[in-house]
Amino acid sequence: MNWYTPVTMEELAAALAQGGESSRVIAGGTDYTIHLRQGKANPGALIYPGRIPALREIMLTEDSLRIGAMATMAELSLALAAVPEFAAIADAAGGVGSPQIRSKATLVGNLCNASPAGDMLPIAKLYDMVLEVLDGNGRLTDVSVSDFFLGPGKTALQPGQAVTAVRANRTAVTGWVSAFHKIGFRSYVSIARIGMGVLLHIDAAGVISDARLTLGAVANVPIRVYAAERLMQGKPLDRAMLEKVTAVVSRTVHDNCRPANRLYKTEAARGLCADVFAQLEKRMS
């Protein structure tokens, strides 16, 4: 098997150009190694960009957040826990797998793997992230998260391309609070049965002026629940509002999930709403 361990972006582009159609880029490798050993993957070449310093960066400026493809879940959960508008990213990253997984797995790797149960899919959707895609000619193209996920394990990424970073617009969410929570089979080391991210902007009078809500592990791709968002706008964060939002979220889960999971997930979504909003209230106080 051919292999490339580029140390600059130029070398990465060259590796993408030379690697051929069946080359594969790996980040943490925590999913890919399993696929490889199960014989589900048979790459002609492996490309590991972990030695490119720029890809390890998490850059938070006044108007944007940029997460390099090799920044790990452990690093993200540390870096963003105290930033209210991005705390949902820390929640999700800190809940992925086990400490061993979080030391290597990356947000971008999770997105490119595109498992419907991936915790970072609803997160990317929540922040309307933009993916920076590099090709073999060294050209960087922006791809919106709404165009990226095509189905289970399928993305808009073409052979010979690699995602080098994702960006979130910080200006759009400055002053907002956020939270992410998931339901799994157990409290640690679990794969999401449903994941939910919420972003709220609450004005000085305690009224929600804007809201975003996304769900993962429900449909094949992450979904944004616009009906729930509209419900929240202009209302205080109280029990009556929460009940209405919970009903909409639960119905959305019912309508979008596979029939085999419907009974459980429709009900579980209610508890998940309670958990996410309890976390948001804690963050606001």
Partner: peptide, 19 residues
Amino acid sequence: LLNGEPIHACLTLAIQLEG
């Protein structure tokens, strides 16, 4: 431990180890 952090040796490939 990889650079002081816990990792799975079963999910780490030779290509990831340089340095």
